[in-house]
């Protein structure tokens, strides 16, 4: 018999296939919440499940799947698991591919489409802004662009969150090491001031950002939020049931200008939730567009 031995082995941890129960939980989370964990993140999902299993005193993934599907606690447990999955996801310049796509493709398209118009004002809604890292990141990025793509433009960022504590934190604009770990020394020096061991966002960054408390299910509030070019809504809709999600997405659709963009969180999808928005692929990011025709009017 002719055999050939592996000539070069790489030192790496032994791999193992994902358990079918874990894949089942992954698919359930995607179906119900719209957030997907690819195969390379299944270890992370398993860790999160194990943590919840410990809290519930559950021994197997099969049993935990039952907790998420048939037991009376299923809705609350799904929220707990989602909290675990998305925990610690708020920090400055969190999703760089998404920010690059917004800056390099979306801004370029908006500026190009409005070339012949006098109104050169950009309006972005950070919907579910948590403690403010996202809207301030956007503000910093757009301030940098004022000397480039956005020459002669103005911009504003409307930031909203349901949680009053988060809104208060966002308004204060003071952040610790975890939130600021992605900041370059240049950005830190230009846009932040030290406050003890923390960093505070400078006033010039804050002036572009208005922060208020808004409940997405408050229709009366939602209808008055109008005229946005871009809505960023990351890891918020995953907590809504399908009916509420549809209602909120319909609001977003109406809140956007024609051809406006809706960005969701990493690996978040609207599949099966809304047919009006169109999925578009940007470099290493996806977004939903209100329509595909050229931007014409505000």
């Amino acid at each position: 018999m002719t055999t050939t031995a592996v000539s070069q082995r790489t030192p790496e941890a032994p791999r193992r296939p994902p358990s079918p129960q874990l894949v089942q939980i992954r698919d359930l989370v995607y179906q119900v919440a719209g957030i997907f964990q690819p195969d390379n993140k299944l270890r992370h999902l398993e860790d999160r499940c194990q943590k919840r299993m410990q809290a519930l005193g559950v021994a197997t993934l099969r049993e935990y799947y039952d907790c998420l599907t048939v037991r009376p606690i299923r809705q609350a447990e799904l929220v707990s698991l989602l909290n675990e999955i998305t925990i610690g996801e708020t920090f400055f310049f969190r999703n760089q591919p998404q920010l690059d796509a917004l800056r390099n493709v979306v801004l370029t398209r908006i500026v190009e489409a409005r070339k012949k118009m006098s109104l050169r004002h950009l309006r972005i809604w950070s919907a579910g802004c948590s403690t403010g890292e996202e809207p301030y990141t956007l503000s910093i990025m757009l301030m940098e662009e004022l000397a480039r793509r956005l020459q002669g433009w103005t911009f504003e960022i409307v930031a909203t969150d349901l949680n009053e504590h988060s809104v208060a934190h966002a308004k204060a604009g003071v952040y610790g090491n975890y939130s600021t770990r992605n900041l370059t020394p240049q950005i830190t020096q230009k846009y932040f001031s030290p406050v003890g061991e923390n960093l505070q966002v400078n006033t010039q960054v804050k002036t572009h950002v208005s922060i208020t408390r808004v409940n997405f299910l408050d229709d009366a509030r939602m209808v008055f939020l109008k005229g946005f070019d871009v809505i960023m809504c990351c890891n918020v809709l995953i907590y809504f049931d399908v009916q509420s999600k549809r209602r909120v997405i319909q609001h977003f659709y109406n809140n956007l200008l024609a051809h406006g963009y809706l960005f969701l969180g990493h690996s978040e999808s609207l599949y099966g939730v809304n047919d009006d928005f169109r999925l578009v692929h940007l470099p290493s990011a996806t977004a939903y567009v209100k329509s595909e025709e050229r931007l014409v009017t505000r």
Partner: peptide, 10 residues
């Protein structure tokens, strides 16, 4: 990165 926007359905 190719700086473009793609709608696969189109």
């Amino acid at each position: 990165a190719e700086e473009c926007q793609v709608n696969f359905a189109e």
